[in-house]
């Protein structure tokens, strides 16, 4: 599995077009902070950053799935891997881990850009405050929730070949989840809130808000819930991949 991760990282990171994404993810928050710096108080800007980062990374999860998993599927390359004696589950999990590693790299670049920009445009205290937020358990939970999207996209990709179909299916699942939560909310308010939190289908993340949420009070549960979600999705995807004809 390590060989596969290494080969995929080499393939993606030696591709010049890949470097558009870290540049974009570094420039986007920096531009927002620089642009809004003179117009809004630092607190308002800092509070908006997590939502922006979360939204950008949900889209990034889709793009990375394209790079790591779907491209091989569309080009029919998995048959080469199967023929080389690779276990299907190992290939599937390796692709997911590659995606998570790349997301982590991009997350680090984006966080660094946010902190440097906040320090430069909003003052050293704001930079320090953002650094604390970015290093918090809540930020880690937010990152894991982005990875839930990655796992969802990869699992859906086994069945749906077109990106547009993938997005539509994702929207349909989100809508179904929202409807289910509305229904669950009436019956069991606590359970609905929990599902909404772990699946990442609810409101965009907010480091501060997440810390104040009742189900997040446990701390570790904040990480365990999305992590468990990723593992379950990886297991389901892996089983679907086992049955796939190449």
């Amino acid at each position: 599995m390590l060989n596969y991760i290494k080969a995929d990282l080499y393939r993606i990171m030696t591709r010049p077009t890949f470097y558009i994404w870290p540049l974009l993810l570094a420039a986007l928050p920096a531009a927002m902070i620089a642009g809004a710096g003179g117009m809004y108080p630092a607190g308002v800007i800092l509070a908006a950053i997590p939502a922006l980062v979360y939204a950008a990374f949900c889209l990034m999860a889709l793009i990375l799935t394209e790079h790591t998993f779907r491209e091989d599927m569309q080009l029919g390359l998995y048959k080469n891997d199967m023929a080389g004696g690779a276990s299907r589950s190992a290939v599937y999990i390796a692709k997911l881990i590659t995606g998570i590693l790349l997301l982590a790299l991009l997350w680090a670049v984006c966080s660094l850009s946010c902190i440097v920009s906040a320090s430069y445009w909003l003052g050293g205290d704001s930079g320090l405050s953002l650094l604390k937020d970015m290093a918090s358990l809540q930020a880690a939970s937010l990152f894991l929730r982005v990875n839930v999207f990655l796992a969802v996209f990869q699992a859906i990709s086994i069945v749906f070949k077109k990106t547009s179909a993938l997005i539509l299916v994702y929207i349909a699942i989100s809508a179904a989840m929202a409807y289910a939560m509305k229904w669950l909310g009436a019956a069991w308010p606590g359970l609905a809130g929990f599902i909404k939190h772990i699946a990442g289908f609810g409101a965009y993340g907010n480091f501060g808000a997440a810390a104040g949420a009742p189900h997040a009070a446990g701390g570790v549960a904040l990480l365990l819930a999305p992590a468990a979600c990723i593992i379950v999705l990886a297991a389901i995807g892996s089983m679907m991949f086992e049955k796939k004809e190449f």
Partner: peptide
Amino acid sequence: EAPAFYPKLSARENLKIYCMKR
């Protein structure tokens, strides 16, 4: 059937990737 490789990579890079994978 038809061989499949990464279209934007060179022949050597494609083989190098499979060396790494195996």
